[in-house]
Each structure stands twice: as C-alpha cells, then as structure tokens.
C-alpha cells in the first residue's frame, strides 16, 4: 500500500545542502506494524513527514495506495491527510484552549462534519482510549499519558488507514508509555497500518518489523 522509490530529500540551508534522505526505498504493507529507529539527525523524522504527506520528496516517488503523492496539489495532500493519515506527536500538540472533546473534534471540523455527529464520534473515540470521564478537561488538567491518549483519539477519529507516531512515548513515564503503546498496537490489530518513529530500542522491539536509519539511508531490516 505504501511504496517509496529512491526517495531523496535535500534541504538548502544557506549556502550548503543537507541531504536528509539519500535514496530511500521502502514498502509497507497494509495493516503492518513497523518501527523506524535511528539516532537524531538520521532522517527518520523527515521520512515520517514524507510518509505523512506533510513534506514532498525532492527526487524519487512516493506511492500511497497507488497514487503518486509528489504529483498531488497542496489541497489534495491536505485531503489525503484528513482522510487517510492520523498523527501522534511526541509533544501531543493539543490546543490548550479546547477541552478533550474539542481537540478530538478538530479534524472533523475541517472535514465539514456536522456538530452533532462530531460530538458523537469524538465521545466514542475518547471512550475507546478510556477517557470518557475526562471529556470536558482541558490539556492542562490532564496528565501526560492522558494527553497522549486524547491525541490518539484525535488521530483515529477520521478512521485513517495509516497511523504515524513520532516518538509517542518520548515525553511519558514508563507506565504511561506502556499504556500508549498498547493502545496503538490495539489500533494496529484492528487493521490500521502503524509506523512508530523512535530511538528507544525497547519501544522499537515491540514491532514485528524494525527499520534502522543512519545518515539518511536505510541500514537493514530485522525481524
């Protein structure tokens, strides 16, 4: 379902060029659970942004369900993100002024889903991550683990086929991290493709397939 063919990503920083990705080729099957490992600066975040259609390859092709993302317009990529891709970030990225329900509703707001249906789906999604008693709590009234669970509810509320988690446990204590990983894995078992970017070997080893990156290149595959 996902195919990267010789993907390069080159940034221009002042006079010099930074080659963040150097000809990465990768195939991810539908419903797969994959860990992307590597030290910081290895290009794993760049790869995740390209997988999430937030960024475009400088060279090479990215096929998402057979569609060449590089040829899509900004608007088409926005719609692709809206319907097919859910993001979970290290720092949660919840809007502090909205309560848990409001944050989960956010993607549906831009999809033009009516208010009543938004409420219902957001409530269901929060219920599914075990936060049905925290619907009207704002982020500053929630613990780190709870915030990440709100973020997961937000990521899946549009029922995307691909879940991208960028260091989802990087800001959490051990027990919260375990809970969050279990949630993500349950979503994967329910049929969603899950890609977890991490530099934590313990988190990475939970996935049946681990891809290592170094200096913009894929090193080897394990498992």
């Amino acid at each position: 379902m996902i195919r990267l063919e010789e993907v390069w990503r080159i940034y221009r920083v002042g006079e010099s060029e930074v080659q963040a990705l150097k000809g990465v080729s990768l195939e991810i099957r539908r419903g797969e659970h994959l860990s992307l490992m590597g030290p910081s600066g290895s290009g794993k975040s760049t790869l995740m942004h390209i997988l999430g259609c937030l960024d475009r390859p400088t060279r090479g092709r990215y096929l998402f369900e057979g569609r060449d993302v590089g040829t899509l317009s900004d608007e088409e990529r926005s719609l692709l993100r809206q319907r097919e891709i859910g993001f979970v970030f290290q720092f949660f990225h919840l809007l502090p002024r909205l309560d848990a329900l409001g944050n989960v509703e956010l993607p549906m707001l831009f999809a033009g889903i009516p208010r009543g249906e938004r409420r219902r789906r957001a409530r269901e999604a929060l219920d599914a991550v075990g936060l049905s008693d925290r619907l009207d709590h704002r982020p500053d009234q929630l613990s780190g683990g709870q915030r990440q669970r709100v973020a997961i509810a937000r990521a899946v509320v549009m029922e995307p086929s691909l879940l991208l988690a960028d260091e989802p446990t990087g800001n959490l204590d051990r027990s919260s991290a375990g809970e969050v990983m279990e949630l993500l894995e349950a979503l994967n078992r329910a049929g969603r493709t899950l890609v977890v970017v991490t530099h934590d070997p313990e988190v990475a080893s939970r996935a049946p397939r681990v891809v290592r990156m170094s200096d913009g290149e894929l090193l080897e595959e394990e498992g």
């Binding site: 937030l54 809206q82 990225h93 831009f110 549009m158």
Partner: peptide, 16 residues
Amino acid sequence: RPEIGLLKAVGATDRQ
C-alpha cells in the same frame, strides 16, 4: 505556529 502546523497535519487546507 505549532497550532497552525497541527491544523495542517489533521487535514486543514490552506484555504481553510
């Protein structure tokens, strides 16, 4: 800025 980034990540178009 982070909010705008997030809005784009969850699928808000430039026009939105």
